[in-house]
Nucleic acid binder design. Structure first.
Lengths: 163, 163
DNA sequence: GTGACTGCAAAGTCTTTGCACGCGG
DNA sequence: CCGCGTGCAAAGACTTTGCAGTCAC
């Protein structure tokens, strides 16, 4: 039987927005309409996104002058600090993904369609620990990106070639 | 016996400069003093570096107006295209490392001293292949960064704490 | 000699910051 | 009503590009 690399779920006590509200309160910060809007959009579906994509989606929902680019960056930083999001860098630009309520995972990155496919491997985590032990290295986290061509793009390519 | 995660060597037919000269000739390009200088500096020792560090080192060797920042970027791109260097992105800035004559490897990244420690794991490579097969994903390459605190920095920290 | 290469200056891309007004708690 | 948060404009960090003179071949 092939191993299962798909992702399970993680128990979560609070919805993201409430968790964020809690975090903000603890810091004497405020839950503004802008912050609320961003959290709702971000957690409305599971996806990876950059600041531009997020801003674009949000500006379909509201008037432009209710949400600016700096606020998007500022709020994404806060959500990351709060542990709701995880930030990574792809081709030199920031990309965020869900962290809160989402299990540890790594990524296959399709260089054709740019899609990120998530997978989980306990064996990989174990291996990281093993290597780290060898170097007396205290692991905080790890990031693995496998670059290549995804199944869908491979199919399209072979069709175009007529093979 | 603990496994060996250190790096071996790779057979190389030509010194880096000659290999680059070959590459340039094949493209109708020229081996200028600037390109020669950069290759010599880059391959004078094994290290990771960004454009600034490289330029700084080079400007100790020559007058400033003999080597500009754009030329550094342009040459690094050519060396990468030629397969002599590999480029990665760390905290949003470009970092290059030797590729030609150097085996595949992954990195431990110390978040205190910023050092990159290289390690090699066949098991990791095997695991990547296994996951990719599961997703019918055609692997081009992979990048793994383990973030944490290296042995040296851990020692310093415990000394400062008096433990 | 000629077209590739260079330095310079300027532009580009993505992200962050200074500031004065506005509003959440 | 205090001071955090916002949008705006501008600055910043890093990298790339246009151009005219220069040089490798």
């Amino acid at each position: 039987m092939p191993k299962d690399y798909s992702l399970g779920a993680v128990e979560v006590k609070l919805p993201p927005l409430e968790r964020f509200a809690q975090f903000l309160r603890g810091k004497g910060k405020r839950l503004t309409p802008q912050r609320r809007l961003i959290v709702e959009q971000v957690f409305s579906h599971h996806d990876h996104f950059d600041a531009d994509e997020l801003l674009e989606h949000l500006q379909k929902r509201i008037a432009r002058r209710q949400l600016s680019r700096p606020t998007v960056y500022r709020t994404l930083a806060e959500l990351t600090e709060a542990g709701l999001l995880r930030k990574m860098t792809l081709d030199g630009r920031g990309v965020w993904e869900h962290d809160y309520g989402y299990p540890r995972h790594d990524h296959l990155h399709c260089q054709v369609c740019n899609r990120l496919i998530e997978f989980q491997s306990d064996e990989l985590d174990r291996l990281v620990g093993e290597v780290a032990r060898e170097y007396a290295f205290a692991v905080t986290s790890h990031r693995m990106f496998v670059t290549g061509i995804c199944a869908a793009c491979r199919r399209q390519r072979s069709q175009r070639r007529g093979t």
